[in-house]
Simulated scan of single mutants.
Amino acid sequence: MPRYLISFEKGAMDHIPEEDFPEVGKASRAVCQEAKDAGVFRFGGGLSYDDGDVEHAVVGTDGLVTDGPDPESKELIGGVLIVDVPTREEALNWAAKIATACRCPQDVRKFMYDPDPIE
Rank of each mutant, 00 (worst) to 15 (best):
K26C: 01
E75C: 06
T100N: 09
A30V: 05
P69F: 03
H56C: 14
E34T: 06
Y4L: 06
P86D: 15
E9I: 11
E23V: 04
P17M: 13
L5R: 11
D37W: 02
I98S: 11
I82F: 03
I98N: 04
F43G: 02
H15Y: 06
G78K: 10
P69G: 06
G52A: 03
A35W: 02
F111C: 03
F41P: 01
P69M: 09
P115A: 14
K26A: 13
C32E: 11
T61V: 02
E9R: 14
H15A: 12
D14R: 14
L76V: 02
P117M: 09
L76M: 11
K110T: 04
S28C: 14
V24R: 12
I98V: 13
M1W: 05
V59N: 07
V58T: 13
E75W: 03
G46K: 15
E90M: 08
A96H: 02
F43N: 06
K26F: 01
D70E: 12
P86E: 15
D70H: 13
P117H: 08
A38D: 03
D20G: 05
E119L: 10
V85L: 02
S48P: 04
A35P: 00
I82Y: 00
E75A: 10
P86K: 14
K110L: 07
L47Y: 12
D50Q: 14
E34K: 13
R103T: 00
G79T: 12
D70F: 09
Y4A: 07
D84Q: 05
K10C: 07
P69T: 06
I77G: 02
D14G: 11
V59K: 08
D70I: 08
I82R: 03
G46T: 15
L76P: 00
V54D: 10
R109H: 08
R109E: 09
F111G: 01
L5Q: 10
V31Y: 05
S7N: 08
D14N: 15
D37R: 07
G45A: 12
K110V: 05
S7G: 07
D116C: 07
N93Q: 12
A12F: 05
V24E: 09
C32R: 08
A35E: 01
V40I: 05
H56Y: 03
A57N: 08
V80P: 05
D114K: 08
F111L: 10
A101T: 10
M13L: 14
S28R: 15
K26Y: 03
R29D: 13
K97L: 11
T100Y: 02
D107G: 05
D114I: 06
G39C: 04
A35T: 01
D107Q: 11
P69W: 06
A30Y: 04
H56P: 05
D107C: 03
E34F: 02
